[in-house]
Structure formats: structure tokens, C-alpha cells
């Protein structure tokens, strides 16, 4: 079975845009709009990667990153924050909280997918295969 890519994003339009671009590139997408549910989903399916927003209802991005990092099952899963750069220090803070990477909004449709792929182990494709 093809491993899904989990997106935790509360903004429907942003979610749709990311999902559209990633699906176009052959990724299977699982999505949730709530931080707490996102962590549960991640544990239940062990996704290919996790994209998450910082501003989230229920559990914000920092808490999500910290929660995901506590589970060694997810140790090898890239956790990538996707958020607007509001304040200097956001990037450092989210990386410190446990995120593997950081992508700034607004996303550039032309480079978005390739930026995600940078966080995959070398040789992976959209299906998570070598």
C-alpha cells in the first residue's frame, strides 16, 4: 500500500492548494484540520511525511511537533512546518520544537513540491520508494 503524506492545516484553501500540487506529483494525501487529530492520525498510519501549520485549533504547531517527536515510531518521518513568517524566531522555535524542516508561506506552486522532496531521504520518490 502506498504511504500517504499527512497534511495538518486548518485553512481549507491552503489545504486544497497543497493537496492539489502534491497529488499532481503522485502523492497520496491524508489531511486533518485539527492538531490533536493530526497527531492521532500520524500514529495510526505512520505517513511518508507530515506537513503542518503552526496556527492550529486544538493543539498548535509547536505542540504537534513536540508530540510527534515523542514517538519513536515517527523518528524517521520528516516533519515539515508550513507557515507564514510572522516573526523572526518562528523558524528557530519550530525547529527547536522538533520539526525537520520549514517552508514559508506563501507557497510557490512552481517550487513547492521540490522543496518538500528535499526533506526526504535521498532517492525517495513520491511513493516513498527508493
Amino acid at each position: 500500500m502506498k504511504k500517504p503524506l499527512l497534511i495538518i492545516e486548518d485553512n481549507a484553501q491552503n489545504l486544497y492548494m497543497m493537496q492539489f500540487l502534491l497529488e499532481k506529483s503522485g502523492f497520496t494525501i491524508l489531511s486533518t484540520m485539527d492538531g490533536t487529530k493530526g497527531v492521532e492520525t500520524a500514529l495510526s498510519c505512520i505517513p511518508l511525511a507530515i506537513l503542518f501549520d503552526i496556527q492550529l485549533p486544538g493543539m498548535d504547531g509547536y505542540a504537534v511537533a513536540a508530540a510527534l517527536k515523542r514517538h519513536h515510531e515517527l523518528a524517521e518521518v520528516p516533519i515539515i512546518a508550513v507557515t507564514s513568517y510572522a516573526m523572526v524566531g518562528d523558524r528557530e522555535r519550530i525547529l527547536a520544537a522538533g520539526a525537520t524542516g520549514y517552508i514559508e508561506k506563501p507557497i510557490n506552486p512552481e517550487t513547492f513540491v521540490s522543496e518538500i522532496c528535499k526533506y526526504f531521504p535521498p532517492g525517495w520518490d513520491a511513493e516513498g520508494k527508493l
Binding site: Q13, N14, M17, F20, M87, K105, P106, P109, E110
Partner: peptide, 24 residues
């Protein structure tokens, strides 16, 4: 505002980009 203004704008820029690229 930083967040609220940019979120819809991100959407506009993003989808416009998708369309311009012919992905849709």
C-alpha cells in the same frame, strides 16, 4: 494581521501560479 492578510493572499498567489503553470 500578518497572518490574516497573508493567508488569503497566499491562496490567491498560489492558485494563480497553479493556473498559470497549466497544472489545472
Amino acid at each position: 494581521m500578518s497572518h490574516e492578510l497573508r493567508t488569503p493572499l497566499n491562496s490567491i498567489i498560489g492558485f494563480t501560479g497553479i493556473l498559470v503553470q497549466g497544472l489545472a
